[in-house]
């Protein structure tokens, strides 16, 4: 019961934050609100028993991405103004997509049910084998580092590629600006 109550409160706050992001025009406020959104979602991850995901989301979503966005705002000095086009067509598109997705969830097993397909196949296998195979108390660590180690290796490759991409895009920024005679 208390679970449902916390979930409902967190959901209400998440939805309110998201709507505030839609309405808000100043970019600095929007970035701060997206940081708040990440922290709230981290709280929701805790109630969903995903503590590792929660602290990754708090560190990455509320920390690093906020810093990156503030850096972008500082570099671009954007002036936000009202959009001229009508919001009617996007609203229709979003409603149709949402209705289709909700229709898709109708066949799903109920939230938290023990006999859902996800709960009877691979998951219990990892849970039962980790104590004897790896002897690490945190099963998420065991899967991340050992059973699915190659996934993590691939993830590192993706982060490396993205880092190189960012460096290539931004390197020479100061030089080009100096050439143009633009003040920073």
């Amino acid at each position: 019961m208390i679970d449902t109550f916390t979930n409902t409160v967190l959901f209400t706050m998440l939805v309110l934050t998201a709507l505030a992001i839609v309405r808000m025009e100043r970019l600095f406020a929007v970035v701060m609100l997206s940081s708040v959104f990440s922290l709230l979602s981290a709280l929701l991850f805790v109630t969903l028993d995903a503590v590792d995901v929660a602290f990754t989301e708090a560190a990455v979503g509320a920390g690093i991405s906020t810093v990156l966005m503030l850096g972008t705002i500082a570099l671009t000095k954007p002036a936000v103004k009202k959009s001229r086009h009508n919001a009617f067509v996007p609203l229709i598109v979003v409603c149709i997509t949402g209705a289709a997705l909700i229709y898709g969830t109708l066949d799903m097993p109920a939230f938290g049910s023990l006999d859902a397909p996800a709960q009877i196949h691979v998951g219990p296998d990892y849970l039962s084998r980790t104590p004897s195979d790896i002897d690490v108390p945190n099963v998420v660590t065991a899967i991340l580092g050992s059973y699915r180690g190659f996934d993590t290796l691939g993830e590192t490759a993706v982060v490396f590629t993205a880092g190189i991409g960012v460096l290539l895009l931004l390197s020479g920024l100061r030089r080009r600006r100096d050439d143009d005679g633009e003040d920073i």
């Binding site: 990754t56 990455v60 990892y126 099963v139 996934d151 993590t152 982060v159 991409g165």
Partner: peptide
């Protein structure tokens, strides 16, 4: 215990997500 497998997959996805976000922001600067 809750199923640990979705947690692992989403951990990977979060990190990949921040990588793509940073690339997008760099493109915006350009």
């Amino acid at each position: 215990y809750s199923n640990p497998l979705p947690h692992v997959l989403i951990l990977t996805a979060i990190v990949v997500g921040i990588a793509t976000t940073s690339l997008g922001l760099a493109l915006i600067v350009r």
